[in-house]
Nucleic acid binder design. Structure first.
Lengths: 154, 154
DNA sequence: CCTTGTTTTGTTATGTTATAACATTACCCA
DNA sequence: TGGGTAATGTTATAACATAACAAAACAAGG
């Protein structure tokens, strides 16, 4: 293919940022690129090591955390708080604004599967929120731990 | 009232442990008691400070983390991974085995509201899991961030 | 009882994750 | 082209969590 999937997503991310009036700087792009190439979830320090190896050998933790915060803010990445990991969003190129995301985290192989939260669940949640007057500030992320189909078999 | 709510819950917790064939030691009970009295979510180190002040001045982090791990394992407490906090389970005394719990976390006042995950949401989630063959290992916890009704008003 | 295996607790040290604070540089735009 | 804002660099440290091993408490059969 002429344009790799990583490039496609990076371009799409850049457009989204322009639309939001925020800056996708080279540094942020490099971090996102690392996330996309690895594919799976990674800790900030793992990403920092790669970033140092590849782009800037003297980089410090705040550099990575700032980039990650930015990407998460923009919805370009997710933070998995139950494992302290970060992950490029799987659905950047699709249109639907997410109203909820489910992550299936395999405790054996460390893999993650990302799926949109189903409609009824989102509606029910919204109803609960309305009942108690709770105003949401971030897209809800549900982190479900267990075994993926491959690991469950073995 | 003759018996405080805290005592009620502690007794109920003790019974549950006996049924499971695990030991609710004095130390574990003390930690749970601290969680119940505070009411809101607290970090392990906050609880450790209280534990030292109240029960054992030389206690170290592993002591607290062990007790917390035990209580979470037994379903007597929850860990809020998005805020690194721990919280006594609100529904110990009610019967229904939870199949999912939603936490509404107010980012302004730090309060938490705990509600069972609604039925359809749980069913939908189970369906998703079945589709991909994912086998769950812990009760799913959904941590939703925002503003509670009081803080949203102000 | 006593002794033996298991669970719990004590203790020291250290690993891992994340941010505060302030200096410097790059960028935007009037 | 200067002045404000956003981003990055840099140092230090805060906050969260666990490894590893020693000692004590417990429970259960002989």
């Amino acid at each position: 293919m002429a344009v790799s999937r990583t490039e496609q997503i990076l371009n799409s991310a850049e457009q989204q940022c322009r639309k939001q009036g925020v800056r996708m700087t080279p540094q942020r792009k490099q971090v996102m690129s690392l996330m996309l190439e690895q594919g799976g979830p990674q800790t900030a320090y793992q990403l920092l090591d790669q970033f140092k190896a590849r782009y800037q050998s003297n980089a410090q933790p705040p550099t990575m955390y700032r980039a990650l915060d930015f990407l998460v803010q923009q919805g370009l990445a997710h933070r998995l708080s139950s494992t302290n990991q970060y992950l490029a969003c799987d659905h950047i190129t699709c249109q639907h604004g997410h109203r909820g995301t489910v992550f299936l985290l395999c405790d054996q192989c460390g893999g993650v599967q990302e799926t949109p939260m189903a409609g009824a669940a989102v509606d029910e949640l919204q109803q609960t929120l309305d009942e108690v007057g709770f105003v949401i500030q971030r897209e809800p992320l549900l982190e479900v731990h267990g075994r993926c189909v491959d690991c469950a078999a073995s």
